[in-house]
Design a protein around this nucleic acid. Structure first.
Lengths: 218, 218
DNA sequence: TGACGTTTCGTACTATGTACGATCAGGTGG
DNA sequence: CCACCTGATCGTACATAGTACGAAACGTCA
């Protein structure tokens, strides 16, 4: 009889966190439970607790892993293209791990990757902007990037049956109740070429250009 | 013996929702449980379920109540001041109910107040902007407003002891690890006059001005 | 081999959402 | 005034969550 059973990897904090990240991507953060995580690791709940003190710390850990996936700004470039690239990267990462967006709010303790990331962005901004403008830029850009990720995460998946049914209901029923919404939905949002995701780069460039303009004027 | 016992109000969906909203303001949305809600209503868990089908619907309901608190844009005004005022109002509301921000993401079914609100904003924008610009403006502004609310909610409360301890640790320990962050924290964020909340109006006006400018040019 | 520190995990406690059915109150027809 | 009916209330119970406790299994060095 072949020893088909693959040898069990040693359990470590790292392995717990990557498994948790993978599981969160599959089933979402709200359905991530210790028991399911233990199953995914072919282990038992209380084994996990030997390597990680609490579920909260697991959540902190995977949020930090998500941050680690965001490209740092390229220090060779000027602040504007460098920050632009990191914002685009951040959006891709947050789209890929859309469960992470609301978590980033409730987590109070930033992990090392999070801190390193913020440090790199601030450094990049400081390369071309005053201290004051750096504050304006970072607050505005990050609000936009995370906020956009929220909006996008709330959107129904393409192919979601409920959404398609809803679309028809909207068309018929809300035409007179919410005319402006109805007009926008029919004439713009549901038009073939429209992709909400494209609004991201529009807004990003709008903000970046305006920041550069104001920086030039002071 | 005085009948000190105040007569019990009749339980209704409205009463359940307002009590839930109040309780969420006190203890946060994650700690809001049916049993605690029942206690607040001087009732029992299963009584609540006679007026509301599930906890999820309670959450949907209080999110809609929060939306209802946001001032609608004044249709007398030009789009820019009108939308500006509603963004400022939205931020105040979201600050007051900071537990609501992450919920607005996960909730899939917008309530009537939410729809009415969106309709009014779109109508206001359409008063001065093209259909395309309306999409750009709404996506960008709402991403910014909600994103800012997230950032603000993640900030430690003023007076939070942990934050003050952290501040000293940051100063000493991270000075060489994260120099840019350290510089920004010490030279700007921790300066007496600095209030992160002020970045909101800066970013808001930056975006509004840029939108107006681009609209003028097309 | 035996002793000991680490890792694993069985059991169990508490808290949660909520299903089911019993109870109760208050109005209605006799 | 009473029997009855309908809807509101709630007691009990179950499945699932996080995780504390202590026992068992394992690896290592003497």
């Amino acid at each position: 009889m072949a020893t088909a059973k693959t040898k069990r990897q040693p359990m470590t904090r790292q392995r717990v966190l990557s498994a948790a990240l993978e599981l969160a991507d599959e089933i979402g953060a709200t359905d991530l439970t210790i028991r399911r995580l233990a199953d995914a690791l072919e282990s038992k709940p209380m084994t996990i607790y030997h390597h990680v003190p609490s579920k909260d710390e697991i959540l902190d850990g995977i949020v930090d892993l998500v941050f680690a996936e965001i490209d740092l700004p390229d220090s060779e470039l000027d602040w504007k293209p460098a920050v632009r690239a990191r914002c685009v990267s951040a959006r891709h990462v947050l789209t890929r791990h859309s469960w992470a967006v609301p978590l980033m709010e409730s987590r109070r303790s930033p992990g090392p990757a999070t801190l390193r990331h913020h440090d790199a962005v601030v450094a990049c901004l400081r390369g071309g902007l005053s201290l004051t403008m750096t504050g304006h830029a970072y607050a505005t850009l990050d609000a936009f990037v995370f906020g956009f990720a929220i909006q996008e995460a709330a959107l129904p998946e393409p192919g979601d049956e409920m959404a398609e049914v809803a679309a028809e209901i909207v068309t018929d029923e809300l035409a007179e109740t919410f005319p402006a919404l109805h007009e926008f939905a029919v004439e713009r949002a549901m038009q073939p070429g429209y992709d909400f995701g494209d609004e991201f780069e529009y807004g990003l460039d709008l903000i970046l250009d305006a920041l550069a303009e104001r920086s030039r004027r002071d």
